[in-house]
């Protein structure tokens, strides 16, 4: 694979993203709004506890968790299944196939381009905000650059797991021809089981035991727990190894599906 051939997809992604900047601000404001709704909900819940601690989480832990998990989902979110679903439905998948590039990698780099914009415009102010909030609440600086670094690596792994999971899911469009309803279903399941809504430790012990090893925890829970600083080094390493495992597993699975379905491809609409 020649990486140089894929670099223009990044710059194309950046430019496409900037071409629709208002769309993206609207989306971002919606996410912020949703985050605050979650925050006030949890605040109400914590006010009605005697100790102010639920499953080892204080209100401060919970607040940081909510904000970090939402920003993580915003950064690692992928439209792969949507993109491939649409390309299969309207037949434009053929336009990718006539180029001497891999289908998945061109899609991946395209999306990474859009992520670069998010990183620059969104991540820095949001994390600064979170840290200022933490400082205001505790009077101590909890920020650690090395932890942020590990968080970013883990987020990238999260993104790869999500991307290739989503790609496998998107290939269902070959069978179903339209994915809209299934995409909504998948989005809810992922959000719930990946720790995007509530920390996984809030699940019953037996469920947590299973969820820890399912791919969902690798999609969001792992980087968030790394950032909040609740994990030991050993647990961090083990979880990141699991992320890597799932990323590779879904990558191989997507390859296998692509290689078999492409032979049965029917291009819709002429």
């Amino acid at each position: 694979m020649k990486i140089k051939a894929y670099l223009p997809f990044i710059s194309g992604g950046i430019q496409s993203q900037l071409a629709y900047k208002w769309n993206f601000f609207g989306f971002f404001i919606g996410e912020i709004f949703f985050t605050f709704v979650m925050y006030y909900l949890w605040k109400a819940v914590f006010l009605h506890t005697d100790t102010g601690i639920i499953n080892g989480f204080t209100i401060l832990d919970m607040t940081v968790y909510i904000f970090v998990s939402n920003i993580t989902q915003f950064l690692t979110g992928t439209d792969a299944s949507y993109a491939i679903g649409e390309e299969i439905v309207d037949g434009s998948v053929s336009m990718r196939m006539i180029k001497p590039v891999s289908y998945d990698i061109s899609l991946l780099f395209n999306e990474i381009g859009t992520k670069v914009v998010l990183l620059v415009l969104i991540m820095i102010p949001v994390f600064t905000g979170i840290e200022i909030f933490r400082y205001a609440q505790t009077g101590a600086i909890a920020f650690s650059a090395s932890r942020l670094g590990v968080y970013l690596v883990s987020s990238i792994l999260s993104y790869l797991v999500l991307f290739y999971f989503d790609l496998c899911f998107g290939f269902l469009a070959f069978v179903l021809k339209n994915l809209w309803g299934f995409n909504l279903l998948k989005g809810s399941i992922v959000r719930f089981l990946s720790g995007g809504m509530i920390p996984l430790v809030f699940f019953p012990a037996w469920a947590l035991g299973i969820l820890r090893f399912l791919p969902f925890s690798s999609m969001c829970y792992t980087p968030v727990m790394i950032y909040t600083g609740n994990w030991s080094a050993a647990q961090t390493l083990a979880s990141m190894a699991l992320q890597l495992f799932w990323a590779i597993a879904f990558w191989l699975l997507s390859r296998a599906i692509w290689n078999t379905t492409v032979k049965r491809l029917t291009v819709q609409g002429g």
Partner: peptide
């Protein structure tokens, strides 16, 4: 193979729509 060919499907485009 596709390195050596050029393709136009009149009803589709290979151009980047937003750029």
């Amino acid at each position: 193979y596709v390195r050596e060919i050029g393709v136009v499907f009149g009803q589709r485009t290979q151009l980047w729509w937003d750029l």
